[in-house]
């Protein structure tokens, strides 16, 4: 056990290591949601040139699908982790076919407006159906309890969230940057006409990319369900923070999105320890500083 103190001019607070590490852990958890969501936004933006404003609503749908699968079909958390992304991803595919595909020729602001409208529809309908108060989702049996690491107590479920989201993030990076499929994707991002000349079905690739990005959001939603309550507005404010994360990182780089997401989660956690009154605005302040110092974002190319 030891204590950490901050300088007098910042308040001169002293914090026991236990509290520090547990906030750090919460920061990593939030960071893994930021990373998963900004990764999905970056993947979608790369292919479709659209900022997916319904990403927060799709994250919320992931959590709700998990809840409904458990309530009505008795499917447990592990099944939900597989099926919720598939179901919500399929809804995303339908959405792309019905709405988004008509917008690619237009100014991409229309994509933002359309997906904002869809987010309002989804969140409004869930609020009508389930009310605004949160619904509890039971933690899976196998992940209850925790480990005493000496300097802190590590709940198993939280460790699992961090490991699982890191794996999914790095897996996505690997697929896009290191596989044949990924090279098609990257090529289609650069020059869709040329890629379709090689016989690749680019429109289908775009549809599936959108579905995949949405599935990532739903996956994050399932993982969030046991930690936070499942509620219709759980995605609305999160998505605005994720937008700030995306502005900070820039959407040009997959690894950039992952690093920025986790990094900002940790910074937010540390702020909660040392300067609690700044903790919910710190990411926006960092965004403002990055805009002043490096307008293109930490990993971005000048657009």
């Amino acid at each position: 056990m030891f204590e950490l103190c901050i300088p007098e001019f910042l308040g001169g607070r002293c914090i026991p290591s236990m509290a520090l590490f547990s906030q750090l852990l919460i920061g990593l958890i939030n960071g893994s949601f930021y990373a998963l969501l900004s990764l999905g936004l970056a993947v979608i933006f790369g292919m479709l040139n659209i900022i997916n404003f319904s990403h927060g609503a799709q994250y919320m749908m992931g959590a709700f699908v998990a809840y409904l699968l458990l309530q009505h079909l008795g499917l447990n958390y592990w099944m939900a982790l597989i099926f919720a992304p598939i179901i919500v991803g399929a809804i995303g595919v339908a959405m792309e076919r019905l709405f988004l595909q008509w917008l690619y020729k237009l100014d991409h602001l229309y994509g933002l407006l359309l997906t904002f409208g869809v987010a309002l529809i989804i969140e409004g309908m869930f609020r009508n159906q389930f009310g605004s108060s949160g619904l509890p989702y039971q933690m899976p049996e196998a992940l209850t309890g925790g480990q005493n690491l000496g300097f802190m107590f590590l709940p198993n479920y939280r460790a699992w969230v961090i490991v699982a989201s890191l794996t999914v993030c790095l897996g996505t990076w690997f697929i896009i940057e290191r596989t044949k499929l990924g090279s098609y994707l990257r090529a289609a991002t650069e020059n869709p006409a040329l890629v379709s000349a090689f016989g690749v079905n680019v429109p289908r690739m775009i549809t599936l990319t959108y579905g995949f990005g949405v599935a990532l959001a739903a996956f994050a939603g399932v993982m969030a369900a046991p930690i936070y309550n499942v509620s219709p507005q759980m995605g609305a404010e999160l998505i605005i923070v994720v937008f700030a994360v995306v502005v900070i990182g820039g959407m040009g780089s997959i690894m950039g999105a992952i690093v920025t997401g986790f990094g900002l989660g940790v910074i937010e956690g540390l702020t909660k320890v040392f300067l609690p009154e700044w903790s919910n605005t710190v990411i926006f302040i960092i965004m403002a500083i990055v805009l002043l110092v490096r307008p293109a974002g930490l990993f971005g190319r000048r657009t």
């Binding site: 602001l109 923070v241 700030a244 502005v247 605005t281 926006f284 965004m287 805009l291 002043l292 657009t303």
Partner: peptide
């Protein structure tokens, strides 16, 4: 002054994020 440092879609996200920050300030 902050938002015009980026174009297009980023401009929209920056203005939204700054507004959200000042909403949180207004809450407290």
């Amino acid at each position: 002054a902050l938002a015009i440092r980026r174009q297009g879609i980023y401009f929209a996200m920056i203005t939204l994020a700054l507004a959200q920050m000042m909403f949180l300030v207004a809450v407290r």
